[in-house]
Amino acid sequence: MSLEAVVLELLSSVPHWLATVIIGALPIFELRGAIPIALGIYDMNPIAAYLFAVLGNMIPVVPLLLYLDPVSKYLRRYAIFDSFFSWLFGRTQRNHSARFEKYGTLALTIFVAIPLPVTGAWTGCAAAFVFGIKFRHAIIAILAGVLIAGLIVSVVTLTGIGLLDLI
């Protein structure tokens, strides 16, 4: 059984709007998974699917931005977490440091807006932390990126669903 099927089964008794919010908040799916599920499986109105997925995707952002630093400092006392955070932050800096130095919060917005794996709000929070972007700049950049990604995913999903109807 796929991860998507497991999540859908766990959320089968939850109203579709709430399931969309929950899926949007999950780090593996975010709105990149929530919107196609809401449109394709729940047959939700596109505007409602977009809004609930964006809401869900933004729910973890504030706690992540506020607590990533103190939690990572606490967890780094343990070797396994120290290794993980070193890997995560090192990878983020290696892959994106030039863009963040040159473009700052605009780079964060673009990074979050690109609907590819590991480019969403969760990773955007880690990038904001790694590059020292202030909370208010990070929250605005991440929200803008999530809104743009939501539009892209919605259009691609609706276009795909429309093409499937023609077949």
Score class of each variant (00 low, 15 high):
G150H: 04
T109R: 08
F135V: 15
T92S: 12
A79V: 01
V155I: 15
A127Y: 00
Q93D: 11
I139C: 06
L68P: 05
A49P: 00
L106M: 15
K102F: 10
I41R: 10
F84E: 02
I142V: 14
A49V: 01
S72E: 09
D43F: 03
I110N: 12
A126D: 02
Y67D: 02
A138F: 02
N57V: 08
A141H: 05
A126M: 13
L106Q: 10
A144P: 02
L66I: 14
H96N: 15
A128I: 11
L147A: 12
T159I: 02
I133Q: 09
V118T: 13
I47A: 14
D43E: 13
P70Y: 06
D43M: 07
L65T: 12
I133N: 09
S154N: 07
L55T: 10
P46G: 08
Y67R: 01
A53T: 11
L143F: 14
G150R: 03
S154Q: 05
H96A: 13
L158A: 00
T92F: 00
L143H: 02
A53F: 07
A126I: 14
L106I: 15
P117K: 00
L75V: 07
F131Y: 11
V54Y: 08
I140D: 01
H137L: 10
G124A: 15
Y42V: 10
T92E: 12
A48M: 13
I140N: 04
F111M: 11
S154E: 07
D82E: 14
